[in-house]
Design a protein around this nucleic acid. Structure first.
Lengths: 248, 248
DNA sequence: CGGGGGGTTGATCTCCTTCAATCAACGTGG
DNA sequence: CCACGTTGATTGAAGGAGATCAACCCCCCG
C-alpha cells in the first residue's frame, strides 16, 4: 500500500518541484549532480510517524510534497508542536544523529533523503549547500520566535487568528497570490493538531473557530474549508496590526 | 559614565574570553587576523536598549561579557522575551539589516562588533565562520523549540522550575561544574523579566518562587541568590524527568 | 526624610480547561 | 442496506489556574 505511486526513484533534480526553495536551491549543475548521486526518495502515508524522538536517524531530508509536524511530548502526554514541515523544508540536523522531536506525516508525503555521512561531506565541500541551510535555519529560528509570542502572550482567539493568518499567507504564496482582501483555503490540520500547535485544548480551538465564524471574521464550508472575506480583519484579530492592515 | 573600563579598544583575539565559543571559534590564525581588522568594541550599560525592533542595524556582534535579552512587544504592551544573550552569543543576522526584536542590556555589557558589509564578505570567503554560525543557529533553534514546550504546555510552577534549571545549568557550565546535587547561583533577571520570559505576570512569578521555597525545592538569600539543595528535585518539578534525574 | 524601583502578598475575577453529552460522516461486516 | 463502531468536531456546565487590581514592604539613594 504505497502512499504515492509517483514514488518513482528517478526524478530528475531539474524537474523537482522544490528545486528552487530547498536546501539545494543555490546549487549549480555540478553540485546538483553530486546530490543526485546520494539522494533517494521515500514516501510516507498520512498519520505515519516518520521519526520518533530519541531514535537514531541515519538520514536528513527535504519535504518534496505533503505536510508533516514536528512535536515534543511530555511523559504525561502533554504535546506541543514546534514546527510545521511543508514542501522544501528540511528535516534533520547535520552533526547530530539522535532525533530530538517526533516527526509525523499529516498528509501523504514524498521526501528526498540523503544518508548522513555523504551529506555531511557535501556540507564541507560545497559552500552553496551550507549557505542555503544557514539561511533556512535562520528563517526557522525567526518563525519559532514569532511563535513564542503567540504561545506566551496571545489569547485563545488571537492564537486561532494567528494560525489562520499563517496558513492563509502560506497558501497564497504557494499559489503566487497576494495575501490580502478575500482569501480561500483548506485547513491542513485537525482541531487536535491545531490545539497542539497553539498550546490549547481542542475544545477551545473549536469554540474560538465557531466564535470567529459567528463574528463574520471567517466563513466555513464543512470543517476544513475556510473563506476569509477580509484578511485585514483577520490580522487585527491576531493582534498583529503593526501594519494596520493597510493593503488588506 | 562608561559601563566598563575594560573597554580598551585593542583586546587581542587570542586573549578573548569567548575565543573558543563565539562565531570565531573555528577560525585559524589567518582568519582571526582578518576578523581583527574589522572588529571594534562597544560597551552598554545595564538597562540600555542596544537595538530597537524595526531599526536599521548596521552591525552584527558577539557578546563578550554581560547579559542581554531579545524581546518582542505588541502594541498594547504585552511583551514576550524570545532569547537570552550570554557571553559568546551572536546578535544580528547576515543578509538582513532591520532588527526584528528589541535587544536590551540586562547587565553592563561588552560587545565585539563587525560592520555588516565586511562581515558578510568574510562569511562567503571563510567557511569556518559560516560553519560555526550555522552550528550556533541550529543550537538556538533547538533552544527556541524547547522553550515553545515551556510556553505552550507547562504550568506556572513548572515554568519557574524550568527557568531555574536553565540558569543553574548555564552557571554550572560556565564554572565547569557538573549540573547535579547541590547548586548555588544568582538570578540575573528581575521578576518582571522572568515573567516576560515565561509568559506569566510578575505576581505569578513571585508567588511560584515563594511556593518552591516553602516546599524546600529552593532556598533564597535575599531576592536573587538561590540555593538548589537537590538538582534532581528541581528537574522533576520542571516536568523534565525524562532522565529520571539519575545522577542528580 | 521622601521617593522610587523591585518584590511580596491578598482578594477577586475571568478565561481557559476539564469532563461530558451529542452529532455528522464514514467504513465495515452481517 | 442497515446496525454498529470509530473518528473528528461541536457544545454545555463546572471548576480552577493564573490574571488583575491593590496594598504594603524593603532597601538604596538623593
Amino acid at each position: 500500500m504505497q502512499a504515492s505511486p509517483t514514488l518513482s526513484t528517478s526524478v530528475e533534480c531539474g524537474d523537482c518541484p522544490i528545486r528552487h526553495n530547498a536546501v539545494c536551491a543555490r546549487c549549480d549543475n555540478d553540485e546538483l549532480e553530486a546530490l543526485e548521486k546520494i539522494k533517494y526518495y521515500r514516501s510516507f502515508e498520512a498519520g505515519q510517524t516518520i521519526v520518533w524522538s530519541g531514535d537514531e536517524m541515519d538520514f536528513v531530508a527535504s519535504v518534496v510534497t505533503g505536510i508533516a509536524t514536528l512535536s515534543q511530548t511530555m511523559e504525561d502526554g502533554r504535546t506541543q508542536m514546534v514546527g510545521l514541515l511543508l514542501p522544501s523544508d528540511f528535516v534533520g540536523r547535520p552533526g547530530r544523529s539522535i532525533a530530538p522531536y517526533d516527526v509525523v506525516a499529516v498528509s501523504d508525503m514524498l521526501m528526498c533523503c540523503f544518508r548522513r555521512n555523504p551529506f555531511e561531506q557535501m556540507m564541507t565541500q560545497t559552500p552553496h549547500v551550507a549557505q542555503r541551510l544557514l539561511e533556512m535555519t535562520l528563517d526557522e529560528l525567526d518563525a519559532a520566535r514569532e511563535w513564542m509570542l503567540v504561545l506566551g502572550r496571545k489569547t485563545a482567539r488571537e492564537k486561532i487568528a494567528s494560525l489562520l493568518m499563517i496558513i492563509a499567507r502560506r497558501d497564497a504564496s504557494l499559489h503566487l497570490k497576494e495575501a490580502s482582501g478575500a482569501m480561500v483555503f483548506d485547513l491542513p490540520l485537525t482541531r487536535e493538531a491545531m490545539a497542539d500547535y497553539l498550546g490549547l485544548t481542542l475544545e477551545t480551538v473549536s469554540r474560538q473557530i465557531s466564535a470567529l465564524r459567528k463574528d463574520g471574521v471567517i466563513e466555513l464550508e464543512g470543517k476544513r474549508h475556510v473563506t476569509v472575506p477580509n484578511f485585514g480583519r483577520l490580522v487585527e484579530e491576531a493582534g498583529d496590526d503593526s501594519d494596520g492592515g493597510v493593503f488588506a
